[in-house]
Design a binder for these strands. Structure first.
Lengths: 224, 224
DNA sequence: AAACATAGTGTTAAAGATACACAATGTCAA
DNA sequence: TTGACATTGTGTATCTTTAACACTATGTTT
């Protein structure tokens, strides 16, 4: 194929990359894909790829995520734009990065054409990564941790319905410490973000729990 | 000049734009430049311009700011990356935006080659702007307001030395409400970010004030 | 029907935030 | 030189928010 796209001045390429988090096996996990082609062939990397010339940035991030991992319909937020001059050996590449949160009941993956494989990794077991992707992950994790304190972002890890105990477990995994049950429930209910779904969840030989759901499933609010 | 930079796939152009804030005349003000060329000739816009192919993003933002307004050495932070497909009539342009804070004693401007003119505008008197720059300003202002609550970013508006009353006035302008003097001083001193400079400032017919300075002038800390 | 296991609930103490008023000190003018 | 002036600098009491803490309720299983 000829180099038929010409400009008066040199242009960088633009990509999007996405750090997708979920909670699985009682751990915070991150989604990585194994690179099918050069450079960094066979190494693990964040899902992502080149921006189409008429495509919105966020649309690009969602498309690449879907193509490479089969995941769609997630909560997505722009993280940071990386553009160090030599971050890619092929040419100058600006990467607009996003982070995404997936509920734990929707993490079925497909190994798709662009990626030889896709897999969830615990955050303390990330393999060596292509490009500057480790830096992206570190930043994404820091941002997620910060947002827990002052937004309702953690709800984005929850399936459509859930119990307060399940929600508490998610928070405990995210902040890595035990919480008091009564205080937790008080604080969560005071947010007025969830409502009773009307059913009970019965699991095991004990009292069933009230099931809740988000009032605004798409929305992440700033609190306090 | 020929179109001598060719690629296999179409590439967007990349620019940086900067929203520079300062406090002047007891108001929060924003720096705008009048566009010298097309498109949007003579309209007001944020200072900014095209990324050189081997230039770091932040370096580009600082360079354009210096070239167009003469301002340098400011606190600069990445804000967001805008990339809607038709935000520029010439070609596809991705803009990596920053916001910057300038101390009120360093706001001498120069009208430079790239910009016919540069001027400070009160936030409620922003003229119609080129491109999607109004959106950028709105976002930058929101981010600044949010950061006041949980960081020491407001110190970046202060000159090298200042009194506690001067600092309080800056905070009052930024959050647009009066603060209690004793509580304000308690809270600020508890941050352990400033120290006595050892001199007194004498202005007017009244008791002189202790002069303070930042312990780490470059640093912005997250608090609480 | 008794043992089990998790759900669900209130109160007290500690810490942090807010409200509030007057003495101290240098300048200026009479 | 003295008194009026204008802003600096300081402490305490109250309210609000957060943190600590233990037992009863309810369905399941044996």
């Amino acid at each position: 194929m000829a180099n038929q796209h010409c400009y008066q001045y040199p242009h960088p390429a633009v990509t999007t990359d996405v750090a997708v988090f979920t909670i699985r096996d009682q751990q915070l996990k991150l989604l990585l894909v194994q690179r099918a082609g050069e450079p960094y062939q066979n190494m693990w990397a964040l899902p992502g790829g080149f921006l189409n010339i008429d495509e919105d940035l966020e649309v690009c991030a969602k498309r690449e995520l879907e193509e490479e991992t089969g995941i769609s319909g997630v909560y997505l937020e722009q993280l940071y734009t990386f553009g160090a001059p030599n971050r890619d050996p092929r040419e100058r590449i600006i990467s607009v990065t996003y982070y995404a949160l997936v509920p734990s009941d929707r993490l079925q993956l497909k190994a798709a054409s662009d990626a030889a494989d896709a897999q969830w990794f615990a955050l303390d077991q990330i393999p060596p990564l292509a490009f500057d992707h480790q830096k992206i992950i570190t930043l994404a994790h820091r941002r997620l941790a910060a947002k827990l304190d002052y937004s309702t972002i953690a709800f984005q890890f929850m399936p459509e319905t859930f119990t307060l105990s399940e929600l508490q477990t998610v928070y405990e995994i995210l902040i890595n410490e035990q919480l008091d049950k009564r205080n937790f429930r008080k604080k969560i209910l005071a947010l007025k973000q969830i409502e009773e779904a009307g059913e009970l969840r019965r699991t095991g030989n004990h009292r069933p729990a009230q099931v809740y759901q988000l009032k605004n499933p798409e929305r992440v609010d700033i609190i306090k």
